[in-house]
Design a protein around this nucleic acid. Structure first.
Length: 501
RNA sequence: GCUCCCGUAGUCUAGUGGUCAAGGAUAGAGGCCUCUCGAGCCUUUGACGCGGGUUCAAAUCCCGCCGGGAGCACCA
C-alpha cells in the first residue's frame, strides 16, 4: 500500500474558469466568434491569444467558432505562404480547437463585390483615380479627390470598369466617404478596393479587384453572423471603419472587444524572420524551437492546457504587457511535475573513478518520481566508474560530493589522464552537493535540443535508448524534456527537446 | 504631430465607492525534504504613477499632469 501521494490527475483544471469577464450582450447559444489569421506561416505564440480567448468564449457560451482564413491579396511585405493553409489547421488541432466552420476570404469576393453598390446608393463610396502618392499627400493635407463628388452613375460605371479590367493596377481604387477633414488623417476616405494583378495561391488570376481588410470584414462579419469580434487593440481603427460602413446602411454589426498587446519577453516573434530561416533551411523546419510556433511548443512538451491557462490569466485587459516565458513554463510545470517520471542525463560528462568503491555496492536504486512511489524505481548497475556533469565537477574539484541516491565521495583535485579520481567516504545521505550520475559502463549518448537551437550532448541512463516519441521526462537537475518526434539520426543517439527547467 | 488605448509589487493579474491596514500567480529571499545547489513543500519581502477635486468613505468617480503603448498603407 503506497503512502499518501498526490492525485493522479493533473491538478487545478478549475483555475481555468472565471478569468475572462462575461461577454457583453451574450446569450447561451447564439454567440459566434471568429479567428481570422493571415496565412503567412504556422500559428505561433503571438496568435495564441486570439485562438484561446475566442475558443474559451465559445465553450462558455456554447457558441460557434469560425476559422476564417484572411487570405486577401496581401502585399509585398505580407505574402501568402501556400502551405500555411494546412499548417494553420493542423496547429488548431494541436491546441485542441476544432472550428465549427472554415471559410476562406478568397472565396467571398463576389459577396464583397455585391455589397459595394449599397454604399454607392447612399453616396458613401467613390472611385478615386489618383495615383498612390497623390492620394497619400492629399489625405495628409485634407484635400478631396476631384472624383469624389462625381455623380453616382459615374461611380458605378467606373466600378464596373474596374471589375471588367478597364484599369491597371494602381490606376483606380474605391474609397469610402468619411470626411477629408477627419481629425485622424488615417481615417480620411480610406480605400475599400484596389486592383492587384498578381496570382493568388488559391484563386489564381480569377480576380483583379481585391477588397481591403476593413471592407471585407464589414461584409463578412455581418453575413457570417459574427456576434463578437475579439482581438488585439492594434485593430481598433478597423472597428471604426466597419462601424462607419454599417451605420451608413443602418446595419447592426457585432460587438468589438480588445486586448492590449502581448509580447513574450524571451520570444522574438518575428514571423517573417522565422519564415526566412525555415525556408532557407537555417532552422529545423516550422517546429524549430526558435520560431515559437505552436508546433515547436508542442514539440518541446508544452501542453496545450498550459498555453490556455497562460493566456487566460491575462484576461481581457487593454494594457500592453510583456511577460517572461517563465510564466508559461510555470503553468506547464504545474501540470507536468506530478506525473512526469525522472531520469538521469549527464550533460558534458566527465569520468570519475572511485578507486576504493565498496564491493557490496553494485546496484543503484532510483525512484521514478520522488513523491510517487507507485511509479516504481529502476536499478542501475554500479562499479565505481561514473560519469558526472562536467560543469559541476569542475566547480567542486576537491570537495566531498554526493552521488545522488547512492553514496558520498571525496574528489581529489585535478583530473589525470582524462579521468577524475575520488575516494569513497560513506553511504548515508549527507547535506553536501548532490550530483546526478550515470554508470560509465551502460550509459548511452543523449542529445537535447535547446530553445536557442543548440544541442546539449551528454550521456543518459541506458533506459533512455528506446522509448515512445513524445514521452516526457524530467532529467534531474536539468529540466523537463520531451522525446523528439523527429526521426532518430543514423547513429542512433536518442534525441530530446528541452521544455524548461 | 494627430487619433485612440492603458497605468495595482520585478513581472502578470484580482479588484467596478465601504467587507482592501489590497487577494492570487510568477520571480526574489529564507527554511524543509530517506537525497533534484534546476523539481516539490512551507514561510516571507514587495504595489494602487503624481496632484487636485466629489464623498461620511476612493485603487475604484471627475479634472489636470506625468509615463507607457498602438494606429496613422492601394498590408493583415
Amino acid at each position: 500500500m503506497p503512502p499518501a501521494s498526490r492525485p493522479l490527475e493533473p491538478p487545478r483544471a478549475e483555475r481555468e474558469e472565471g478569468t475572462l469577464p462575461a461577454l457583453p450582450g451574450a446569450q447561451m447559444g447564439p454567440v459566434v466568434l471568429r479567428f481570422a489569421p493571415f496565412p503567412s506561416g504556422p500559428l505561433h505564440i503571438g496568435n495564441a491569444r486570439a485562438v484561446v480567448v475566442n475558443d474559451e468564449y465559445r465553450r462558455r457560451y456554447r457558441g460557434r467558432f469560425l476559422l476564417v482564413i484572411d487570405d486577401t491579396a496581401g502585399s509585398a511585405e505580407k505574402k501568402i505562404l501556400p502551405e500555411a493553409y494546412d499548417l494553420i489547421r493542423e496547429d488548431l488541432t494541436l491546441l485542441g480547437v476544432t472550428p465549427d466552420e472554415v471559410h476562406y476570404k478568397s472565396d467571398r469576393l463576389e459577396r464583397h463585390y455585391a455589397f459595394l453598390p449599397r454604399l454607392f446608393a447612399v453616396d458613401r463610396a467613390y472611385v478615386c483615380l489618383c495615383d498612390g502618392p497623390t492620394l497619400t499627400r492629399n489625405r495628409r493635407a485634407g484635400i478631396a479627390c476631384p472624383e469624389r463628388d462625381l455623380p453616382r452613375e459615374v461611380q458605378e460605371e467606373r466600378w464596373e470598369r474596374m471589375l471588367a479590367g478597364g484599369y491597371r493596377q494602381g490606376e483606380a481604387v474605391v474609397r469610402l466617404k468619411t470626411s477629408m477633414q477627419d481629425p485622424n488623417p488615417a481615417f480620411r476616405d480610406r480605400v475599400l478596393f484596389r486592383i492587384w494583378e498578381g496570382e493568388h495561391p488559391r484563386v489564381g488570376t480569377r480576380y483583379r479587384v481585391w477588397p481591403m481588410l476593413e471592407f471585407s470584414w464589414a461584409v463578412d462579419d455581418v453575413e457570417l453572423g459574427i456576434t463578437h469580434v475579439i482581438r488585439g487593440k492594434d485593430l481598433v481603427m478597423e472597428d471604426q471603419m466597419e462601424t462607419t460602413i454599417w451605420e451608413s446602411l443602418g446595419i447592426r454589426g457585432p460587438l468589438f472587444l480588445h486586448w492590449g498587446l502581448l509580447s513574450v519577453r524571451d520570444a522574438k516573434i518575428s514571423k517573417s524572420k522565422s519564415a526566412a530561416e525555415v525556408l532557407s533551411g537555417q532552422y529545423d523546419g516550422w517546429a524549430d524551437p526558435r520560431t515559437w510556433s505552436f508546433r515547436s511548443l508542442v514539440r518541446r512538451g508544452i501542453l496545450p492546457e498550459a498555453i490556455r491557462s497562460f493566456i487566460l490569466g491575462f484576461g481581457l485587459s487593454q494594457a500592453d504587457i510583456t511577460v517572461p516565458a517563465e510564466a508559461l513554463y510555470a503553468e506547464n510545470r504545474r501540470l507536468l511535475d506530478p506525473v512526469t517520471p525522472r531520469r538521469i542525463f549527464v550533460p558534458d560528462p566527465l569520468e570519475v573513478v572511485v578507486e576504493d568503491w565498496p564491493e557490496d555496492l553494485r546496484i543503484g536504486r532510483l525512484a521514478n518520481h520522488p513523491e510517487r512511489p507507485d511509479l516504481g524505481q529502476r536499478e542501475l548497475p554500479v562499479d565505481g566508474r561514473f560519469l558526472l556533469p562536467g560543469e559541476d565537477l569542475r566547480a567542486r574539484a576537491s570537495q566531498e560530493i554526493r552521488l545522488k541516491d547512492l553514496a558520498n565521495i571525496q574528489l581529489s583535485g585535478k583530473p589525470s589522464q582524462g579521468s577524475w579520481r575520488a575516494r569513497f567516504t560513506s553511504r548515508p545521505n549527507k547535506d553536501i552537493p548532490r550530483l546526478q550520475w550515470v554508470p560509465f559502463a551502460g550509459s548511452v549518448p543523449v542529445s537535447v535540443l535547446m530553445v536557442d537551437g543548440h544541442r546539449v550532448e551528454g550521456r543518459g541512463e541506458s533506459s533512455l535508448a528506446t522509448g515512445t516519441p513524445g514521452e516526457m521526462f524530467q532529467f534531474e537537475r536539468f529540466g523537463f524534456v520531451r522525446r523528439d518526434t523527429e526521426p532518430v539520426p543514423a547513429d542512433g543517439t536518442p534525441r530530446f527537446v528541452f521544455a524548461h527547467g
